[in-house]
Nucleic acid binder design. Structure first.
Lengths: 188, 188
DNA sequence: GAGAACATGTAAGCGGTTACATGATTAT
DNA sequence: ATAATCATGTAACCGCTTACATGTTCTC
């Protein structure tokens, strides 16, 4: 399974970009908005928010409340917005890491439709390469019916899982590209 | 992404079950045999092999060689085989963690076809529940065309990813069940 | 009265990778 | 020459989760 590297930072920054909020709010927002493909714990959110301020990508102000613990409200800075947009526009280093790709697509409205389409096109290309390879493996295994060895049947089931997964990835990328390009700019 | 807990142990034990081998061999075997859905590093393999011996699930003997570094050849014990079979027969705690499910299915020939089918049926059930939920979310988002807000288009793309993924998971489980049950015992 | 929601943070620990250390042999 | 293969192992590090600490208010 692929590593996430610095992506946590941009998941948080993306939430702050919608409106200023506390670490507690960020947690809930990520759950509701990105919950289908992303999750973060307090153990990562709070330290990262501190770093965001140190790096000048956000500012904090403490908001005292009656009866409730006081909140630290974080606001994204101009630098933060610039950084977020830049990150969102660049293709993820591992195009098959759908987590990071999905997070970038989610932030697609910050960049351009053409850009999102470009990310998807690159991912589709990689997925197709992968699909071709796994198809070959799968067919080789199916045809090599010479030995009806014990594990063969089950091995094929695991191979087919991968086959179906990449077929599905390609299908999704294709239909998403169609909808994105059909809906806005056709000039690419 | 779900945690793997103790599954490394059984990936290794599964290799030793095919034939006695060294840690170096285990690494290569896992790459070729399980590479489509599993990977292990030396940093995990060597310490785990030591534990396997301590727990009585494997034995070691050192094999000196001329010119080459000497090998430590590990052999699975009867206890090891019993443990492996037991693990392979039980449904993974998280049925949507395909990694562990696939590893158990791969070892299906150690148990029974009926057992593997049962694991698949349980996973299919969970996947269908999940699919139903995500379908609802997806339709809600598509119908709520009230606000043509900035992020909507991209949010839908990420939701559709999940939708397609669970569709594909269900499809795979269904066709795998069919092939497993059509091929051997129909009595379940 | 119990438990959830509000709210922030830290420390311990787990699971995992990478780089390092060592060194001969064989294939290109 | 140079890289790959053979072979074992460890230490440092990273990313991440979980549990803990603290305390009020609102809801059932």
């Amino acid at each position: 399974m692929p590593r996430r590297r610095g992506a946590t930072r941009y998941a948080i920054l993306g939430m702050l970009n919608e409106s200023p909020m506390s670490g507690y709010d960020v947690k809930k927002r990520i759950e509701t908005d990105l919950g289908h493909f992303w999750r973060e714990s307090y153990g990562k959110i709070y330290p990262e928010l501190r770093k965001l301020v140190l790096d000048g990508l956000a500012t904090v102000r403490t908001q005292d409340q009656e009866g409730r613990p006081s909140r630290k409200v974080y606001t994204i800075t101009v630098n933060g917005m610039v950084d977020l947009r830049k990150w969102a526009s660049q293709a993820p280093p591992d195009l098959l890491d759908t987590g990071e790709l999905l997070l970038k697509i989610y932030h697609g409205h910050l960049v351009s439709s053409a850009n999102t389409a470009s990310l998807l096109r690159k991912a589709l290309q990689r997925a197709r390469e992968e699909l071709q390879e796994i198809r070959q493996h799968y067919e080789d295994e199916e045809e090599a019916s010479s030995g009806a060895d014990a594990g063969r049947q089950h091995r094929i089931v695991t191979l087919r899982y991968r086959l179906r997964y990449y077929e599905c990835l390609c299908l999704w990328a294709e239909e998403s590209l169609e909808k994105l390009e059909g809906g806005s700019s056709r000039h690419l």
